[in-house]
Design a protein around this nucleic acid. Structure first.
Length: 379
RNA sequence: GCGGCUAUAGUUCAAUGGUAGAACUCCAGUUUGUGGCACUGGCCAUGAGGGUUCGAUUCCCUCUAGUCGCC
């Protein structure tokens, strides 16, 4: 397990991340395969675009189909979903809290209850009651045979006062220690160990972010994630939080900004020193008709100086009904190579599933190209 | 030709002698460790003419259009 820095981008790094399923280039973006599938997209298509790692979700996969099936009959998520490159699994912490709101809508109450030992929550789809400890989360992720696994954390929403944020991150730190202890015990004899990442919390308070980072580093992880970002705080807070936190994280370990983001936020992240990203934006917005388009040739863009490099266009709009142009002249995806704006708008307007597939493929191509350009920046 | 029925938003349908509602479309916005096609807003209507009435989209008459039945 190592993180080899090969080049510098300003304060950040460009490197190779070694996992048990292979060495992959950073900075990288992970498409989200919550339920063991990047919605509507085949693994071979993900790989063809260039992505080297996807994100699976402990929460969803635990509820359905359950780890018994995946572990016993498939020996892990790779074989189950037919993806043999690296997989990162989220711990489930974020979903228990973010989907608590959905459970509230469906069943009248969120059902989320935190205790020192673990968290009680309600399945947002059918109302079933569950209890998960930090140890459970690690065990599920080991059963899924992920390459990078995350500590169970509490992710408070915004706004969150200082006292609550402090209590929350202290619980997250105690849970992180338990995750690490359990992980070490369970992987002592393993030849191919996954990497275990800790998650920095602390809302948007400088002292708490620093404390969180220091305490995690003291426990010692294979990588460090920045969590609790893009939960409703003002956008300009992102760069601030990164600048507070990153100096306290070891330079020879990968840093992962959880859940982000928009293209310009990913640029900010890379330039500040983030190595890994994941986000629902390319796939979810694609499914809803919004597509990213380069304003100029991405191979000629300087992302350090050029802040206005793309458009985000809603192709459900009637103004594209008779638009015979390609979606984006700079894109090499199947949609842009073969179809018109009018055709895509038609597919969306009649609700054909191919619309969401083509749009997801397009946006994933955009995000991959963005990462590729960022890896070349200041080469 | 005779008789019945209908006429409300771009479309399909509500309601009412006193501010005309909904769904879809359309228009705008939202989506950040996934919501399987979502969410939040917004625009747009009583076929035409006359009568009764303080007031008619509503009741009455004529016309027009559609629709069904009969010859």
């Amino acid at each position: 397990m190592s993180f080899e820095i090969t080049r510098n981008i300003r304060d950040g790094r460009l490197g190779n991340l070694k996992t048990k399923s292979g060495i992959i280039k950073t900075p990288l973006f992970m498409p989200i395969a919550t339920r063991g599938v990047v919605k509507t997209i085949l693994p071979e298509e993900i790989e063809k675009i260039g992505f080297e790692m996807v994100l699976g979700n402990t929460y969803h996969l635990w509820l359905k189909p359950g780890t018994k099936l995946i572990k016993k009959y498939f020996k892990g998520l790779h074989s189950f979903m037919n993806w043999n490159k690296p997989i990162l699994t989220d711990s489930g912490g974020f979903q228990i809290f973010s989907l608590g709101e959905r459970a509230r809508i469906n069943f009248g109450k969120s059902g989320v209850k935190l205790t020192e030992k673990g968290v009680y929550f309600t399945n947002h789809e059918n109302g079933d009651k569950y209890f998960m400890t930090p140890e459970d989360s690690i065990q599920i992720q080991l059963d899924l045979d992920a390459d990078i696994i995350m500590c169970l954390d509490e992710c408070p929403s915004y706004p969150c006062d200082h006292e609550r944020a402090k209590k929350s991150l202290e619980l997250t730190i105690r849970w992180a220690k338990r995750c690490k202890d359990y992980f070490d015990k369970k992987t002592r004899v393993s030849r191919k160990k996954p990497l275990l990442f800790g998650i920095v919390q602390g809302s948007n308070y400088k002292d708490l972010r620093i404390k969180s980072a220091k305490d995690l580093v003291e426990i010692g992880f294979d990588g460090y994630a920045i969590g609790g970002v893009a939960v409703g705080e003002p956008r300009e807070k992102l760069a601030e939080i990164l600048k507070w936190t990153l100096p306290y994280l070891p330079k020879d370990k990968p840093r992962y900004l959880m859940g982000l983001g928009r293209p310009e936020e990913i640029v900010t992240g890379v330039l500040t020193g983030i190595d890994m990203f994941d986000c629902v934006i390319p796939t979810r917005e694609g499914r809803h008709g919004r597509l990213f388009a380069w304003k100029k040739d991405p191979n000629k863009i300087n992302l350090i100086t050029d802040k206005d490099f793309y458009d985000s266009i809603n192709f459900k709009k009637a103004c594209y009904k008779d638009d015979l142009n390609k979606i984006n002249e700079f894109c090499k995806c199947p949609l842009c190579q073969n179809f018109s704006r009018a055709y895509l708008r038609h597919l969306f307007s009649v609700g054909e599933p191919l619309a969401t597939r083509l749009a997801s493929l397009h946006n994933l191509n955009f995000y991959y190209k963005l990462m590729k350009v960022l890896r070349k920046t200041n080469e």
